[in-house]
Write a protein that binds this DNA or RNA. Structure first.
Lengths: 376, 376
DNA sequence: CGTGATGCTGCAAAGGTTTGCAATGAAGTA
DNA sequence: TACTTCATTGCAAACCTTTGCAGCATCACG
């Protein structure tokens, strides 16, 4: 029933190779023939079978996008940006959700391996060594995780966490809690490192709470603990947790920002819609998606994997060019942070309102690109 | 470089067909041989090429999931439910986002057609006729749209809209606005129809506002218009719009629910987190995802499309069994609705708080399944 | 001992496409 | 006229796997 290249060939009275060329190398076929073939194809509703094509060319024109949790509003902008970028390059994106499960992650890479030309691994929960191993099976670009030898797109959450802590210290907070996220998250480690350093520098005490699930539930679950700990400010692993925490604190009768200030990370749309509006570290998710696709395609293009009787050529360990890109983050000050117990009395209303003087979000261009090419 | 079935055959000293059988029909191969082959495969890191397999079996064990807008929190639960259901059946789900663009939708169906065994079309924006036409190219299950002759999973938003209007009328509202969604949305039409009927029956006047973008922005953009229209209650196309509207009204100094009551549709997680908490019509998104996958796989299994030299058999117009499933919705009363101008003075605090007496969400089982098999 | 059944394996075709190479014919050049 | 060049097209191998069929032992049974 499905119409193949052979049907078109028969209908237009040419050999299948001519039909094939009509689609993949039009300049090689007589204009007259071309229009005839195209007409027949249109007539019959022919569409090249991409799987069969991939079998021989070694390129599927698909890329896989593996996400820890689609329900986390942090990801959709990244997904959309990646999709649109891919579309421009005539690629399609297949998204898959792992439910924050490392095993599912590995499973998916295997399943996708032969059906896509490369995979974007976003906020992976696997170990670095497993990621490296998988990268031998299919080209990988990692987002939100640093893996040496692999192309990575990182967001400078360290700098973001530092800015957040400095903001809180500036407001007069000296006792701050850090709400940790998933243990295996690179972002989580970076934040902890940077927040600890910034707190030390600012003369504040940092309490670590976690690990927690990176969701509203994870945030509200820890509200009681935050209240007991007596801190006057909290930096949460992400906006979802921050929002959940605010809800939880509210239920316990603790007011934000009057009694406790809360800062999130990500600047998801939602953070502008809750009350109080959330102070947060904006991460350039769109730029990350675009950059990751670019890096994948670039690396893909120079080595058309699974090519014809290669054997030689790429046989030896010719390492691809790998680059790591770090994208800038920005602190966006809104209404969930306010003066702390040590606020300078001179400026009691110092807490800025609204978008503040800082740049909004998604600068769109990489800041530092360390392109260390390791050849052979 | 990629290791194929041939490498394994060579390594274990058997024919490739034996290797193939080791994986796809283990009972046909000598246990001794089997372990040897498996050991070699493991050693070499062999993984069957699913694309090549699909070429011959006609089944990819993938299903496509086409979504209007991943950023709409309505969809993730549906996606996750579909994925988990598919995984149980040894299928993988590829998600793709269309940005609410009908052209992208068509494009995607074509692109996916040969790479998946079937496609779930969620909240499509295409015309019915185009959908029917595409369904000849690849098995389709439609969600949130009624297309005669095709398997559909519907949510009874008509009933939901009626319940919402009745709730508002009961609270003493007589002038109600309906915030429309996208013009090409089936849900939108159903809601309008049902809401109009319910308003008429309740002696209330219904003002139609729209169409609008089904997002927060779409909701807040229409706030001014709502204010001017002088209605005391609004039923929005979805929660996102309802939340945006509440924001917009707030910016105009209009209080919800004191001056205007707002009801949403979907019961997304977010609707519990905003202030006021949103009164909304809960839709069983999880059940929809599961049901859709089941229907697709069921229809798929009985006709292994693209099978070997068929030609006869399915040649004539042997229509598949098609069913349409309607899932129940539930009104969840929270804090965004309150007494209207015609509230009975006897019960000034009649507006219930909290989850109310109604069932929470996601009943999980289809209510009415009209399985009309049309066999030619 | 002959017959048939059974268990395991190999052979080769098939699936839809791409692509290097060869063949054809026409046009251009010397 | 003979030779080269070019444009166009056909041929057939290749990609990796599945699967119907046939071959071959081995075994049980009569």
């Amino acid at each position: 029933m499905p119409v193949t290249i052979r049907d078109v060939a028969r209908a237009s009275g040419v050999h299948i190779s001519t039909v094939s060329r009509t689609f993949s190398a039009p300049h090689l076929v007589n204009p007259e023939t071309r229009v005839r073939v195209l007409a027949c194809a249109e007539d019959l509703g022919y569409r090249p079978n991409r799987a069969a094509r991939a079998l021989i060319t070694g390129r599927t024109h698909n890329i896989g996008l593996i996400i820890a949790d689609i329900a986390n509003p942090f990801f959709p902008p990244l997904i959309k940006a990646a999709e649109s970028q891919a579309r421009h390059r005539d690629y399609h994106v297949f998204v898959a959700d792992t439910n924050e499960d490392p095993a599912a992650e590995e499973e998916l890479v295997h399943a996708l391996a032969k059906q896509v030309d490369g995979v974007l691994l976003c906020s992976p929960r696997m170990s670095n060594s497993l990621i490296e191993q998988l990268s031998r099976e299919v080209p990988l670009v990692v987002v939100n995780r640093q893996v040496t030898g692999l192309p990575c797109v990182l967001m400078d959450v360290g700098q973001g966490a530092r800015a957040a802590i400095e903001h809180l210290v500036g407001l007069g907070h000296r006792s701050i809690a850090l709400l940790g996220g998933p243990r295996s998250s690179w972002t989580n480690r970076e934040m902890r490192r940077a927040a600890a350093a910034a707190a030390r520098a600012g003369g504040a005490e940092l309490t670590l709470l976690g690990p927690n699930a990176p969701t509203e539930v994870g945030g509200s679950a820890v509200a009681e603990q935050v209240k007991r700990s007596g801190v006057s400010a909290v930096l949460a692993y992400n906006d979802l947790m921050a929002i959940g925490l605010i809800e939880g604190l509210d239920a316990l009768g603790v007011r934000v920002p009057q009694e406790v200030s809360v800062v999130g990370v990500d600047d998801i749309t939602l953070s502008r819609l809750t009350r109080p509006k959330l102070t947060t570290v904006a991460t350039p998710t769109g730029a990350a998606g675009r950059t990751a696709v670019d890096m994948l395609l670039q690396q893909d293009i120079e080595s058309p994997r699974g090519a014809r009787g290669s054997g030689a050529g790429t046989a030896l360990g010719v390492r691809r060019t790998t680059a790591q890109v770090m994208l800038q983050t920005d602190l966006v000050i809104r209404d969930s942070t306010g003066p702390g117990p040590y606020a300078r009395p001179a400026r009691p209303l110092a807490a800025p309102r609204g978008p503040g003087p800082h740049c909004p979000a998604d600068p769109g261009t990489p800041t530092a690109a360390t392109g260390d090419a390791v050849a052979s």
